[in-house]
Computed example of a mutant assay.
Amino acid sequence: MKSSGDHALSIGAVAARFGVATHVLRHWESVGLLTPARVHGDRRRYGREDLHRVAVILRAKQAGLGLDAIRQMLAGGNSAQRREVLRRQHAELTRRVAEAQAALRLVECALRCDHEDVARCAHFQAVVAEGGGP
């Protein structure tokens, strides 16, 4: 059981600390991602563990994981399920990185091009073709 005294913060303080709205923290609690301690008046109190979990949730969201995938990843005791969620996310991130690199090559090529109409440049057309364009 969590102790409410280990660096306990209010929902407003946690929201401000992480730059999220309080309703986001409440939603994460409602879907099972957070379980802050409760004190008099049913007020939420977030300890160190909760703060770490909020940070993990935010980083996982930045990595593109949805809340269901984050919940599966954080669920204790099922490492096979966690690995499968992470494998799928790894594949998706790898795909997105490749797309971003192809887009960056296209932009860099266009920046180096001196043609009036970059779409008519043979080199630019070759870069477009490499990236799976028409």
Rank of each mutant, 00 (worst) to 15 (best):
A110K: 06
L51T: 01
I70K: 14
N78V: 07
L25C: 10
L58G: 04
L106G: 11
A98K: 15
R96A: 02
H40L: 13
A119K: 08
L111V: 10
G77C: 15
L33Q: 14
K61E: 00
A13I: 01
G133V: 02
D68A: 08
L106M: 04
Q101E: 15
H52R: 14
E29I: 00
N78W: 00
V54Y: 13
D42V: 05
G32S: 07
I57Y: 05
F124M: 12
M1W: 06
S3F: 04
D6G: 04
P36W: 04
V118R: 15
A122E: 15
A100V: 11
G12L: 10
E29P: 02
R26N: 04
G5I: 01
I57D: 01
L111F: 11
G19D: 03
I57E: 00
L51V: 05
G64N: 01
H123Y: 14
R26W: 09
C121T: 05
K61T: 07
I70P: 04
E92R: 00
G64P: 01
E29W: 03
D42F: 06
V107C: 05
R71F: 02
Q101V: 03
A80T: 13
R38M: 05
A103N: 10
L86F: 01
M1Y: 08
G77H: 08
N78R: 09
G131M: 09
H52V: 15
V54M: 08
C109H: 11
E116D: 10
A55E: 12
I11N: 07
H90F: 11
R43Q: 14
V20W: 02
I11E: 06
Q125W: 06
L111E: 13
R44M: 10
L67H: 01
L67Y: 03
L65I: 10
L93N: 13
G32M: 05
C121Q: 09
R44F: 13
W28C: 01
H90S: 09
V31F: 02
C109P: 03
Q125D: 11
L74A: 02
R83T: 12
A126I: 05
V31C: 12
G47S: 14
L104R: 14
V39A: 11
C113R: 07
G12M: 10
E49V: 15
L65D: 04
V31Q: 12
V85I: 04
R45L: 07
A13V: 03
R53F: 07
H40S: 13
H52N: 05
S3P: 03
Q72L: 06
R87I: 00
T35C: 15
E49F: 03
T94E: 11
R82K: 08
H7V: 08
V39C: 06
E99L: 08
S30W: 13
G76T: 06
F124R: 01
H23E: 15
V54E: 05
S79W: 12
A37L: 02
G77S: 03
E130P: 06
